[in-house]
């Protein structure tokens, strides 16, 4: 049995509310989830389910007020900023919005070399690495001299992926990385994620609201609802034969591109809703 790469154990995230002695808002109610090396765990849920907050907790961007997160057995929640910075080599991120996640004033090469230069790489090494990275995400070599605004959404997301890959991380938190993209672009970017994973063995915590995306890319799927994990299992099982009623609701709510099957699905959803009422 492989030791998990990332262990999320009973994690609680609370945000203080305004006002004296006001109880804090609890966004995550004790989430436990493991990620193995080289594995994609899909995290599905609707807006407000806490899926993004869990990703931010792993990244150290959300306050973990209970439980802990371990990386290779070492606690990484609630550690100091210096220790956190050291983790940047291993834990990386690709955000949803390819428009605001790249600094509009920096060239692509500057965006890609920044993490390397911070880590102490020489300028020449960093430049060489940029060429490799652009190659890895299938962008042309001259992309480095351009600004983010010169690229389409899908290409920007490739730049964001290249930045995440720059220091060979062990795990990348992907927060809705394809949600803002057109359908055909979406499938190409997803295939890039898979290709990179097969080559480098990086693990993904893949956050999305779309069950078909998660089914395509994940080995295992975890479903979140109102700050709690309602179901975890293999991708095929969760996305085609869900056990939990909420997952079933989610699955039946997503329309399928086939009028006959969609009509059947709608019937089933209405039946399920009627049965519950």
């Amino acid at each position: 049995m492989t030791a998990p790469l990332l262990e999320i154990e009973d994690v609680v995230v609370e945000y203080p509310l305004r006002g004296f002695r006001q109880a804090p808002a609890r966004v995550l109610h004790g989430i436990s989830l493991d990620i193995l090396p080289g594995e994609t765990v899909g995290l599905v849920g609707e807006s407000g389910s806490g899926k993004t907050t869990l990703g931010r907790a792993v990244l150290g961007l959300a306050p973990v007020t209970g439980g802990e997160i371990r990386f290779r057995g070492e606690r990484i929640s609630g550690i100091g900023t210096k220790a956190r910075r050291a983790l940047s080599r291993d834990i990386q991120v690709v955000f949803q919005d390819p428009y605001s996640s790249l600094n509009p004033a920096m060239t692509v090469a500057d965006i890609l070399t920044e993490p390397l230069v911070v880590a102490g790489a020489s300028r020449a090494d960093a430049d060489r690495r940029v060429r490799d990275l652009l190659d890895e995400v299938h962008l042309p070599q001259d992309a480095g001299q351009r600004l983010p605004r010169e690229f389409s959404g899908g290409q920007r997301q490739r730049i964001a992926i290249a930045r995440a890959l720059s220091r060979d991380p062990a795990v990348i938190v992907c927060d809705e990385p394809v949600s803002a993209l057109d359908l055909s672009t979406q499938s190409r970017v997803l295939d890039l994620f898979i290709e990179i994973q097969e080559r480098t063995g990086v693990a993904y915590l893949f956050i999305t609201h779309d069950l078909s995306v998660v089914r395509h890319i994940s080995h295992r799927v975890a479903v979140m609802h109102r700050g709690e994990l309602v179901e975890t299992g293999d991708a095929a099982q969760v996305t085609s034969d869900p056990r939990h009623s909420y997952t079933r609701t989610l699955l039946l709510a997503a329309p399928v591109p086939d009028p006959a099957r969609q009509a059947a699905r709608r019937e089933e959803r209405h039946r399920l809703a009627a049965a519950r009422a």
Binding site: T2, L5, L36, P37, G38, E39, T40, A170, L183, S184, Q186, S187, L190, I194, Q197, E198, R199, T200, G201, V202, S212, V213, R215, H216, I217, S218, H219, R220, D234, A235, A236, T239, S240, A254, V256, P257, D258
Partner: peptide, 25 residues
Amino acid sequence: RSLLAATLEGGPARAALTTPAGGTR
């Protein structure tokens, strides 16, 4: 046709991880 083909819905689910890909184990 290409748009309809790009939809992920109904495609095969990714198989469970058996052997970790790549080097890091």
